[in-house]
């Protein structure tokens, strides 16, 4: 039986009705609010996925996805993001243990892997644009750059957030407020990895 279940029991052992349990702990409420933000962010991505699905065949005589994308490149990008998601998990475990040392170590690895992902994505974008296949080439490429670029923007913002959080751990320490923010950050980072599963499946592997 978990703590949460025990707290819902009266001393006599019967269950306390929901109406008498009082407010949920801040940790649960904050996670729920941030989870709602993440879901609304995923709905934003859904609109871009819908645009891509509709426009992916409209190449206007230009190159198709099959000709443009390099699967080896995408596999390395995926590996970077997946491993960074794992180290982000280690990062949050280090925070639960209040271990500053491992928080910095895993924070730094997560940051490096995320930066590697962004670097690979930017190199792919600049190469495509250099060959005249920028977003203005066709409706397909507009949708591609909007969707993949939006994901890249999220990862970039996440990297900035991670730097900010590491600075807060260094200056403020593990205060409840900082720990709450760190928890939100790890939710955000894992959610970006979930979105990337959709991107590499639909955009890169589904290219025709």
């Amino acid at each position: 039986m978990t703590d949460a279940q025990i707290s819902q029991m009266t001393p006599e052992g019967s269950e306390i009705p929901i109406s008498e349990r009082g407010p949920a702990p801040t940790r649960v409420v904050v996670s729920y609010g941030f989870w709602l933000f993440i879901l609304s962010d995923i709905i934003l991505f859904a609109a871009l996925f819908a645009a891509y699905a509709v426009l992916s065949g409209q190449t206007a005589g230009g190159p198709s996805g099959h000709q443009l994308f390099d699967r080896g490149h995408v596999l390395i990008e995926t590996a970077c993001l997946l491993l960074s998601s794992f180290t982000c998990g280690m990062f949050s475990l280090a925070i639960d243990q209040r271990s500053a040392r491992y928080t910095y170590v895993f924070g730094a690895i997560t940051f490096a892997l995320g930066l590697g992902f962004i670097g690979l994505e930017l190199s792919e974008f600049t190469e495509m644009i250099a060959h005249g296949n920028g977003p203005q080439r066709s409706a397909f490429l507009s949708a591609f750059f909007a969707l993949v670029g939006m994901h890249g923007t999220h990862v970039t913002l996440g990297l900035a957030w991670l730097l900010g959080m590491l600075a807060q751990v260094a200056t403020l320490g593990f205060t409840p407020r900082v720990v709450g923010r760190l928890r939100c950050f790890s939710l955000f980072w894992h959610a970006l990895d979930v979105v990337w599963i959709g991107v590499f499946t639909i955009v890169y592997l589904g290219a025709h």
Partner: peptide, 16 residues
């Protein structure tokens, strides 16, 4: 730095 933080006791550091 982290060892100056009040709630990061030496015992907790040992876990790390």
């Amino acid at each position: 730095r982290s060892s100056n933080i009040p709630d990061n006791t030496p015992e907790q550091h040992g876990h790390a």
